[in-house]
Simulated assay, not measured.
Amino acid sequence: MPALLQSVLALSALTVAYGKPQTGQGPVVAPKGQKTLTVGILGDFGWTGWEPANLHFCNEVLPVLQAHNLTIPRDVQNDCDPGDRAYITNATALQESTATYIGDVCEKKDCKAFVSVGDNFYDSGVDFTTTGINRFQEAWVDMYSQGVFTNAPWYQCLGNHDIVYGQSGVDFETKIAPLYDDRWYFGTEKLPYYTYDLVGEDWTATFVVVDSDCFIDSYQKDTSVYKNPYTTACHKTTQTQVDFLTKTFAESKADWKFLQLHHGFLSVSGNYTELWPLISVVEKHNGIVLNGHDHCTAHYQSNNTNFVLSGGAGYPQAGDCNNGVSLGPFVKFLGANSQAAANGFVTLDLSAEKLVFEYYLRDMQFDGGDLFPVKNDMKPQYSFKVTEHAK
């Protein structure tokens, strides 16, 4: 028996023995046959449990090692990122508070599933090590285990922080995590790209998940912490994912079609134009794009295509939403102001007649102030509807 499989089976046996999480029972999926089905869309959340490399190493030792031309592992470089190091304390607290907030809103709205748009674990993802296992438990299993989260599937997606470890990190999220906790869903083939359908009483929605990390040209530079054998290889075969999306959308008779990925093609922070081969397929089929990466929430629209940004479930950054200032008519909503971005997420109500997107932003009070005042954060601060079906 392969060593990896032996380890996975042993892990499954342990988690079943201790009773949490549910393991080995088969994937949890969204219920079928509902007139209206509500899902939560969120991303960029997994900060809890990350331990940056110590300050002495990052500031004093690392430069010496680099000066001696020693190869520094990408994950070690990433764990010395000065910006992320500065965020970690607040980011952890904000993820915890926002997780509770999302649970409260989704309890009220009766969310039946969650759609992730990536960056599930900062700063350098997780892999099949004791540290990775413990982080998965703390930052996801325990974080999202109460109330409405208890039996809801999470349709997952990879982000740039998830692939820093390369193939080992990808394998953990796509192959091991679904066996660790049945709510964590990554398709039937356990690949970084896959498709799934949500099926209602009289409607169907097709979602195609891709790994947008493979498309980003800057990740191929030697200076990038995201360059590794995994991203190098999949960058050469991006057409495989484009063909998968093209074939799936063409064969689907669904009323609604979605592309689910991490990076944004349209943004007020940074546009990843390399994603155009994917976006052109979405436009052809009158689909909708769901993405994260920018740490805020927004709604963009171009060529009659809606782009839903939901990256505010962890550490929000106002600059990612241009500090609340629109750049042009393609910007319909920005969940930020001149001082701050809001923590929050987006709910999607699916039915035969329409799609309803609602943006929930958290009132971010703390002792002595309020980072993002919201009068009633249990009501959506912005919403839009889609009534034209997919092609």
Score class of each variant (00 low, 15 high):
Lys112Gly: 06
Lys112Ala: 08
Lys112Gln: 15
Ala113Met: 04
Phe114Glu: 04
Ser116Gln: 07
Val117Cys: 14
Val117Ser: 14
Gly118Phe: 09
Asp119Phe: 01
Asn120Asp: 13
Phe121Cys: 01
Phe121Trp: 05
Phe121Asn: 11
Asp123Asn: 13
Asp123Phe: 00
Ser124Met: 08
Gly125Ala: 03
Gly125Ile: 05
Gly125Gln: 07
Gly125Glu: 12
Gly125Val: 05
Val126Tyr: 15
Val126Asp: 09
Asp127His: 14
Thr129His: 07
Thr130Ile: 15
Thr131Tyr: 11
Thr131Trp: 04
Gly132Phe: 05
Gly132Asp: 13
Gly132Gln: 12
Ile133Lys: 14
Ile133Tyr: 15
Asn134Arg: 11
Asn134Leu: 14
Asn134Ala: 13
Asn134Trp: 03
Arg135Val: 04
Arg135Gln: 13
Phe136Arg: 01
Phe136Glu: 01
Gln137Asp: 14
Gln137Val: 15
Glu138Phe: 09
Ala139Trp: 02
Ala139Pro: 10
Asp142Trp: 00
Asp142Met: 04
Met143Tyr: 11
Ser145His: 12
Ser145Asn: 13
Gln146Gly: 09
Phe149Gly: 01
Thr150Trp: 14
Thr150Tyr: 09
Asn151Trp: 12
Asn151Gln: 06
Pro153Lys: 08
Pro153Phe: 00
Trp154Asn: 12
Trp154Tyr: 02
Trp154Thr: 10
Trp154Phe: 14
Tyr155Cys: 06
Tyr155Val: 11
Gln156Val: 10
Gln156Gly: 00
Cys157Gln: 15
Leu158Tyr: 10
His161Trp: 01
Asp162Ala: 06
Asp162Cys: 00
Ile163Pro: 03
Val164Ser: 05
Val164Trp: 03
Gly166Leu: 11
Val170Gly: 03
Phe172Arg: 06
Phe172His: 11
Phe172Leu: 10
Glu173Met: 13
Glu173Tyr: 06
Thr174Phe: 09
Thr174Leu: 05
Lys175Met: 13
Ile176Phe: 03
Ile176Val: 15
Ala177Glu: 10
Pro178Thr: 00
Pro178Asp: 04
Asp181Lys: 07
Asp181Trp: 02
Asp182Trp: 03
Asp182Ser: 02
Arg183Trp: 01
Trp184Gly: 12
Trp184Ala: 04
Phe186His: 04
Gly187Ser: 11
Thr188Phe: 09
Thr188Asn: 15
Thr188Met: 11
Glu189Thr: 10
Glu189Cys: 10
Pro192Trp: 00
Pro192Thr: 02
Thr195Asp: 09
Thr195Pro: 07
Tyr196Gly: 03
Tyr196Gln: 13
Leu198Trp: 06
Val199Cys: 06
Gly200Ile: 03
Gly200Ala: 05
Gly200Ser: 08
Asp202Trp: 01
Thr204Cys: 13
Thr206Lys: 07
Val208His: 12
Val209Tyr: 02
Asp211Met: 00
Asp211Asn: 07
Asp211Tyr: 01
Ser212Ala: 11
Ser212Phe: 09
Ser212Glu: 14
Asp213Gly: 08
Asp213His: 11
Asp213Phe: 07
Cys214Phe: 04
Ile216Thr: 11
Ile216Glu: 12
Ile216Tyr: 08
